[in-house]
Nucleic acid binder design. Structure first.
Length: 486
RNA sequence: GGCGGCAUGGCCAAGUGGUAAGGCAGAGGAUUGCAAAUCCUUUACCCCCAGUUCGAAUCUGGGUGCCGCCUCCA
């Protein structure tokens, strides 16, 4: 089996093969750091994190580059509102981005270039485009001439002559007046009074949005990369323009594969800053949704399809994760021991089948939904074991031995999806402002006594009292009482 | 208007020619003083119409509905 991926460039799902055998270069369009990331960003970056993890797991050497857009009108606007500076706003949001990604267990990119630190490469690229006649200057701005690039529109399926007509009514404003064609776009923007600016052969100013990606891709990964990633909303104009710039300059293909993720919707509409219907990653995590629940929620749908964000769907994912997490926690316990080769062999057939089904699902354009189904099925026996072993069942402990290999596989496959055991809430977990373990044990003993005396009113009162303090009691067969700190 | 995508049980969501994975919720049972948790069992003919085929959720054509992009956007 080989990995098949849907390439936006060809609109087909094709077998993936990197330019250099065994090595994959990937570039992902990052964020404009004017604000916190929301669930749309989370979805996108989780999807590509899974692609990266899967490639690594499959034995590829992967170089992953993601940029920060730290020069932008919105950053300037934000800085002006705060009486701050572009640098401070950017720094703050880059820090937040790093923290949010780490919280979601998204592997950090190998390199994360910033527009402000890539100006030489940007200016060089603009210069080349101008030398080749693909760009023209106008009042301190420099524009890319889309009509000079034969392939323009190949990614988004646009036809320039038709677009010309459709765009006629929109041509207005000074920038539009300077353009030769409505779809021409700025490579370099001349500085307006009071704006931060950088020197250039065309006068002080700053780079346009699209050019930075072209410059960074070339600088960090070379002329032609294997995979370029981004949200479907970037196909036009951003990615189309990136292709035009890079390919006009180098004469070579920019990226062999273009992968685009579907949008996160709220009530049938795209989640976005402008619509104001967004939830930040931070806010969601702070409201009590765990990072792994969010990952599960995202991964249960295929990455190219729209994903509707609802509290119901999220709650379903939370419950689903609770069960999977229990299995993973046990697996981490069981899988860590050294049990010898004899037990490993016992479950090998079942395991290799699971591994195969998982790979087959992932090979099919990253069918994480199907891959998760495999994971849930593998986790099932572990879950039931987890529940039995808690009451010290000797038989269960013996089974645990036999399931050692299975535990490792479950952890391994979960890891490919970036899912890891989360939050130790069983006895022994750290108390944060709640009753201590000793206090809980005492209360349980008290309730036990009340139950023995058939004083159920008192027993229920103790239980309710603990629940108020965030401690949930679970009676197990055999008279034992377990508890969870929620 | 142009380009692209989607429509599967109460909800989410796989499935791309041979009689529908998985998760959540629900139901029944076991267990329990009760509850929770857990375990077992269980719930669909796939938007509509026509066609291709021995056979279609899966292919073709036509509808209907919804979404994204065409302006900054993951």
């Amino acid at each position: 089996m080989t990995l098949r991926l849907t390439n936006s460039l060809t609109r087909r799902t094709e077998p993936f093969e990197p330019l250099q055998p065994g090595q994959v270069s990937m570039y992902c369009c990052g964020v404009t750091v004017y604000d916190l990331c929301h669930l749309g960003h989370a979805r996108s970056y989780i999807a590509w994190d899974v692609l990266r993890r899967y490639l690594l797991w499959s034995g590829y050497q992967v170089t992953f580059v993601q940029n920060y857009t730290d020069i932008d009108d919105k950053i300037l606007k934000r800085a002006a509102e705060e009486g701050s500076s572009m640098e401070l706003v950017s720094e703050r949001n880059i820090d937040a981005f790093v923290a949010d990604m780490a919280a979601l267990n998204i592997l950090p990119a190998d390199r994360m270039p910033r527009a402000t630190q890539s100006l030489d490469a940007i200016r060089e690229l603009i210069g080349e485009l101008q030398a080749k006649g693909a760009a023209y200057g106008a009042d301190g701005d420099v524009y890319f001439a889309v009509m000079k690039h034969a392939g323009y529109g190949k990614l988004s399926g646009r036809d320039l002559s038709e677009q010309q007509q459709n765009a006629d009514g929109r041509v207005s404003g000074s920038e539009e007046a300077r353009k030769h064609h409505p779809f021409d776009f700025a490579l370099w923007k001349g500085a307006k009074p009071g704006e931060p600016s950088f020197p250039s052969p065309w006068g002080p100013g700053r780079p346009g949005w699209h050019i930075e990606c072209s410059a960074m891709v070339r600088q960090e990964l070379g002329t032609t990369i294997d995979i370029h990633l981004g949200g479907a909303d970037l196909i036009f104009p951003h990615h189309e323009n990136e292709i035009a710039q890079s390919e006009a300059a180098t004469g070579q293909q920019l990226a062999r594969w273009w992968l685009h993720n579907g949008m996160v919707n709220v009530g049938g509409e795209k989640m976005s800053k402008s619509l104001g219907n967004f939830t930040t990653i931070r806010a969601l995590l702070e409201s009590g949704t765990s990072a792994m629940t969010l990952r599960l929620f995202v991964l249960q749908a295929h990455y190219r399809k729209p994903l509707d964000f609802t509290t119901e769907a999220l709650a379903a994912a939370a419950t689903g994760w609770k069960g999977l997490n229990a299995a993973l926690q046990l697996a981490a316990q069981v899988g860590s021991g050294d049990w010898g080769p004899a037990t490993e062999a016992q479950a090998s057939d079942l395991l290799s089948e699971g591994r195969l089904r998982f790979s087959a699902a992932m090979d099919d354009d990253l069918n994480t939904s199907a891959a998760l189904a495999v994971l849930f099925e593998l986790a099932k026996p572990l879950r039931s074991l987890a529940n039995r072993s808690e009451r010290g069942d000797a038989h269960a402990a013996a089974e645990a031995l036999a399931l050692h290999a299975e535990s490792q596989l479950v952890l391994e496959l979960a890891g490919v999806l970036g899912l890891k055991p989360e939050g130790e809430s069983r006895p022994g977990g750290a108390a944060i402002g709640g009753p201590s373990e000793a206090e809980i044990a005492a209360a349980i003993a008290e309730r036990q006594a009340a139950k023995a005396a058939k004083n159920y009113g008192e027993a229920d009162r103790i239980r309710a009292n603990l629940l108020d303090q965030g401690i949930e009691l679970i009676d197990k067969p055999g008279g034992l009482t377990d508890w969870l700190r929620g």
